[in-house]
Design a protein around this nucleic acid. Structure first.
Lengths: 291, 291
DNA sequence: TAAAAATACTCCATAGGTATTTTAT
DNA sequence: ATAAAATACCTATGGAGTATTTTTA
């Protein structure tokens, strides 16, 4: 087998065209370098350098091998640097699973801040259902979830953001005449809700807010996208309780009102602590626990 | 320095994901392979394989290095094969200097026959003056001359072809009435000739033919291209003695007549015997001395 | 004759082997 | 308890050094 040491020393020799000088440069003695070249030539089955005691010059094959060997050494150096870059997470791939709530809230900021520090990492962003997150993470299809708390003991979760809920009313709704509205005022109104199985933490918080107000919604329309909820409210089909960040949609047919001591809904990142993907570790280092 | 042995063994290990099995495949023992990998990882400064007594798996850096290392091994094999191909002359470059006389005669056949056997060699064909041939060959700008005898003691020459001269007459010339013409009949005619310094062997042969006929040309028009000589003969400006191969131009205004026991003009290849270009050696082997 | 590569031999560093320990399931 | 990797220690091969010979201009 041809060893890189032989290749490197050949390149110096091909440059110097003098065994003694080349041997000095690579910290060998002339006889050692002489034998090393012979061994290389024997392995290749051809002469690379035609030499007498008075002249040392490359053969045609020697010139070709010099050209190719130079490329080889560069490739090896590139491979070393490439591998180190992946080990440090400055290159590589990070598969991100996010829920739609994350997409409205922290996903843009998290992605932007990560890519500012690690611009050469390829991010794969997959929108997933909260219910699928654990499975996808265990099977290695995603490295990190940007989502509400996954409630899975084998995953870790780091909260990055939380916000209160607020009331979403049609602009034309009679309650809009009042300066202050409590949740209790919504009793008996038709509620627009997403089903518990699409977004349990939000559903539970809404129910909690209602029960604090002393009632539970009776007339309900279910729809599974938050954007649809806002549209249905705008059409006057009912009222809703939504995360405050929904206000950014700024729909002209909808008014938002704060909820006193509202339950909070939170969002963050979750990951499998046994996943050693350096890109994941770097992401986690960017968002360290408050502790 | 990372050695190819380490790279190859890593690839087997990355494939097997089992130190014992991989060690067997590469004729090592498990502890040796274990240490060899540690050494590789130390040189790279990162872990390639995360391992416990129960599981062996590639890290992200390990997968990247596997990908890159695979390419490296292929590149090394390519370099070996490429170098061997150049050494055997099946790839490479052959710089050919040819004179115009060779271009009308043997150059096409020589090139074709060489390229049939060595299709991957890059031929560089340069038209040169016979006078420049020796200099260009000594300076390495051409490897082989396709030409008349160079008369240079440090070069070798292998004749491949020879032909007699013939008389070229304007079709309208009075001598054309006769069935047989001897060179002597041309005495007193105006001769179209190229100067001795452009093509000495031809010039000398023509003079020899005339002196055999018992005269030497008096009225002379000099022009240095054989094609021009034919054109001038066709216009009736004079007669010429040309190599028989000029008949292939088949100019309607020119008749050709044989010359009895004409001197021959020859053509072949010449080369510097110290030039070891494998492509040259292969060419010479295709045209061995008649001996 | 002199400069430089090749050869002969000697030696030692390090790659590799053997025996054993550690580790994780 | 067992399978497999790591470690400790020993061995030996082959790469490297020193001294010398050969070669060629």
């Amino acid at each position: 087998m041809i060893e890189t040491r032989q290749i490197k020393n050949f390149l110096v020799l091909a440059e110097q065209l003098h065994f003694g000088k080349a041997a000095n440069l690579v910290n060998l003695t002339q006889p050692s370098l002489s034998r090393q070249l012979s061994s290389l030539e024997e392995q290749l089955g051809c002469t690379l350098i035609s030499r007498t005691s008075r002249s040392v010059e490359l053969t045609a094959a020697g010139k070709e091998f010099q050209r190719l060997a130079h490329g080889l050494i560069l490739s090896i150096q590139d491979a070393v640097r490439g591998t180190q870059a992946v080990a440090q997470g400055s290159r590589g791939e990070l598969k991100v699973g996010f829920t739609s709530y994350a997409a409205w809230t922290i996903l843009p900021a998290v992605s932007k801040s990560y890519l500012e520090t690690y611009p050469h990492v390829r991010l794969h962003l997959h929108e997933v259902l909260p219910a699928d997150l654990t499975t996808l993470m265990k099977s290695g299809e995603i490295d990190v979830g940007v989502t509400v708390h996954p409630f899975d003991g084998s995953l870790r979760y780091q909260q990055l953001f939380s916000e209160p809920l607020c009331i979403a009313l049609p602009s034309a709704h009679p309650l809009n005449q009042l300066a202050d509205i409590s949740v209790k005022a919504l009793e008996g109104s038709r509620f627009i809700l997403s089903r518990r199985d699409t977004f349990a933490p939000l559903y539970d918080s809404i129910m909690q807010a209602c029960s604090t107000g002393g009632f539970s919604p009776e007339e309900i329309i279910y729809t599974n996208l938050q954007q649809s909820i806002i549209n249905l409210v705008a059409e006057g089909l009912g009222v809703a309780i939504v995360p405050q960040s929904m206000r950014k949609f700024n729909h002209p047919g909808v008014s938002y009102r704060p909820i006193e001591s509202s339950p909070e809904i939170d969002c963050g990142i979750c990951w499998d602590p046994t996943n050693q993907n350096p890109c994941l570790l770097n992401l986690l280092a960017l968002f360290p626990p408050a502790a």
